[in-house]
Write a protein that binds this DNA or RNA. Structure first.
Length: 349
RNA sequence: UCAGAUGAGGGGC
């Protein structure tokens, strides 16, 4: 049963829900009863494949059959509902659980706190946090990190810092993700020397900085046109044995493109392309934007076709950049062609 | 030892 659950999990992550359900069928045929873990795996599979409502129906059906789900199941539902913007449904679920046998745990509260923060309702998130504390649950590092991140996103630096200090009083040890959230927030509010101090503190506290930690610092340098410093930092990251990922490359290429170093950007882009480095729509779009800005629209359109061949479809942002460039060049015919292509792909709202 | 759950960075306007 354990192996079959793992199999189901694999199918779910490959988007092969039909296969996943056929494994469930085999479990039933063999006379076994699937465990809650198996069923939760399937529920999550439905959710990540865009079928949250079907997952909810499956849940209700199984409950009617006498199955009892646990915290992990409800945490999955709550998290997935938040991810698709249905935070209020997650809140309703939370309230419902508060009056039931399976009481919400810290993880479930965390999903709602994080969901509210992502929607910008940080004060509401803080209320949920307080409500959790009133119910004798102890907030963990993730509860704090979500709130800290939320306060930074709405530019409430002071509130974020208060929470960071509060962690210490609760004997919570900020981890790499907590520090990274702080560093990102500080960089985006221009307080980079403080951010760098925290990088030092991380090393001192054995919370090693990773590529997520350095990316906001790199982004700050790029967006403020300190391109040489950015390149130096990028080299330093690699010297530390940290492999830059596609986000880090995007930050660098975008910065180089925007501030007059298109050729350097081109070279780096070509280099990672040759190496077979996995690229995504955002890095292609950054490069396309750079090309358009300097008037290389044909090259940009060629790259747009190339990304498609590499299994990476241009999205609405990619199309808008090229269309705008074409319109600036008064090539209305080609612009209209691309606009129709966007419509055909359902990229126009 | 790991069958299922929650937190961090990048592209246009």
């Amino acid at each position: 049963l354990i192996s079959l659950s793992m199999l189901i999990n694999c199918y779910c992550h490959l988007g092969q829900m039909a296969f996943a359900f056929s494994v469930l069928g085999k479990i039933f045929k063999s006379g076994y009863e699937p465990s809650i873990i198996t069923l939760t795996t399937l529920i999550k599979g439905l959710c990540i494949n865009g079928q949250v409502d079907m997952a909810l129906e499956l849940h209700d059906f199984l409950v009617a059959q006498g199955f009892q789900f646990d915290e992990v199941t409800y945490c999955t539902f709550s998290s997935e509902l938040c991810k698709i913007g249905r935070t209020s449904a997650a809140i309703q679920l939370l309230l419902k659980l508060e009056g039931q046998v399976v009481k919400p745990n810290v993880e479930i509260y965390n999903t709602v706190i994080n969901g509210l923060c992502e929607d910008g309702y940080v004060n509401e998130a803080k209320k949920v946090f307080n409500r959790m504390v009133e119910r004798d649950l102890v907030p963990d590092v993730i509860s704090y990190t979500s709130l800290i991140n939320g306060y930074f996103k709405i530019k409430r630096v002071d509130e974020a810092m208060v929470l960071f200090r509060e962690m210490h009083f609760r004997n919570l040890v900020p981890d790499t993700i907590t520090y990274t959230s702080l560093i990102d927030g500080l960089c985006k509010s221009g307080r980079t020397s403080f951010a760098w101090e925290l990088v030092g503190e991380m090393q001192y506290r054995n919370q090693p900085p990773n590529i997520f930690t350095y990316s906001p610092l790199l982004d700050f340098l790029c967006k403020n046109q300190h391109l040489d410093k950015a390149i130096t930092l990028f080299q330093k990251i690699m010297d530390l044995g940290i492999q830059p990922d596609v986000c880090a490359y995007t930050i660098l290429i975008d910065g180089l493109c925007k501030y007059g170093r298109l050729n350097t950007a081109r070279q780096i882009f070509q280099h990672i392309l040759n190496e077979g480095f996995p690229l995504d729509v955002q890095i292609y779009t950054a490069m396309i934007n750079g090309l358009c800005k300097e008037g290389f629209i044909d090259e940009a359109m060629a790259l747009c076709l190339e990304m498609e061949d590499n299994g990476c479809s241009p999205d609405a942002v990619t199309f808008k950049i090229i269309i705008r460039a074409l319109l600036d060049k008064k090539d209305n015919v080609m612009a209209e062609k691309l606009l129709n292509e966007m419509l055909a792909r359902g990229l126009v709202k």
